[in-house]
Design a protein around this nucleic acid. Structure first.
Length: 213
DNA sequence: GGCCAGGACACCA
DNA sequence: TGGTGTCATGGC
């Protein structure tokens, strides 16, 4: 049996050290959706270049995004890498939202607890991107078990979470977490990862405060 | 100049 | 269900 992290204390401690995270860094939901796809296995630094291009050309207006030819879209997002995959993912995801008139609250009502499964039917939207959309677009209280989270939890608990679903199953957010908390928790984990994941002393310090038996 | 980044998917056993 | 190869750019 591994020692487990006290999620409550981890959230509080990360907030105290580096909060507020300011995540997700975007001014609109279409921009969040674009960022969520573009950042797949890619540094945010590369994504920012792409977002600047997209803003200039489309101002993140869905109808303008969808009006781009596949070649135009690929050209605009090229610096984010995997541009063939991502151009298709962006197009299919935006078509999906268009099908639902970009009515976020209505989508939540319609699919209810099945929304995650529905998002996963979109080509190019996998486990993590679906959770990111749930948290930052649909304001759901969900844990995002991304690479930074897996590394952090693996380090703190001194074990190895091999993939997304393994950590996802292991982490239950506190009942009282609001959608803001879920957003902030993810942002803090990733920001902490960027800053300190290679700092053993920092990790040890955090472990003492968040891991019990 | 190789390694890696805020994954997803096809294919295989 | 779980493991592996592939997709691609830019920063270090």
């Amino acid at each position: 049996m591994h020692s487990q992290i006290n999620i409550e204390r981890l959230y509080q401690e990360l907030s105290r050290q580096i909060g507020p995270s300011g995540w997700w860094p975007a001014e609109s939901k279409p921009e969040i959706i674009l960022g969520a796809i573009l950042v797949q296995n890619t540094s945010w630094n590369n994504v920012e270049k792409t977002l600047i291009q997209l803003k200039e050309v489309t101002d993140f207006q869905p109808q303008k995004i969808l009006a781009l030819t596949i070649d135009e879209l690929q050209s605009l997002i090229r610096s984010s890498g995997f541009y063939k995959n991502k151009s298709r993912a962006i197009h299919e995801t935006f078509k999906w939202f268009e099908k639902h008139q970009w009515d976020y609250s209505k989508i939540v009502q319609r699919y209810s607890t099945e929304l995650s499964q529905e998002l996963l039917t979109i080509h190019g939207v996998g486990e993590e991107t679906a959770d990111v959309l749930l948290v930052y677009v649909f304001d759901q209280v969900v844990f995002i078990a991304d690479a930074y989270a897996r590394r952090l939890f693996s380090n703190l608990e001194e074990r190895t979470y091999k993939n997304y679903s393994q950590l996802k199953r292991a982490v239950k957010l506190p009942q009282h977490f609001t959608s803001f908390d879920a957003q902030e928790f993810h942002g803090l984990i990733d920001e902490f990862g960027k800053l300190y994941l290679k700092d053993e002393q920092k990790i040890d310090e955090l472990r003492e405060k968040t891991v019990g038996l």
